[in-house]
Amino acid sequence: MHELSIAQSVIRSVLEEMERRRLSSVKKIHLRIGPWSGVMADAVQFNFTVLCVDTPLRDVRLIIEEPPPQGQCTQCSHTFPIQAMSLVCPQCGCESVRLQGGDELEIAFLETGE
């Protein structure tokens, strides 16, 4: 259950970012959490809500994008989104595919204003 410390890191980073940019409030926080990051987006969402109660972020909406991992065929270089655990190049049928992305764990952007 390291989602608690992940949620704490998000809050700390956003508060720092607000101070640095002199923002009085933030409306939405957009995160990117890949399905292979080892982090469960739902649990981050839940922990964030619990931890925010006593902070200036209590009314902020956390929006989590979960980008699908990409595969790149080592033979024909074709790049494609990976849906299941089937690692076969749809272009040439080759089974040697290099995985790219899917392990994102990032704060993408903030939204301010009304």
Binding site: S9, S13, V14, K27, L105, F109, E111, G113
Partner: peptide
Amino acid sequence: TEQIAVEKKILSE
């Protein structure tokens, strides 16, 4: 509304 790019890893610390 204004979008402010952060593009920072959550575990950057």
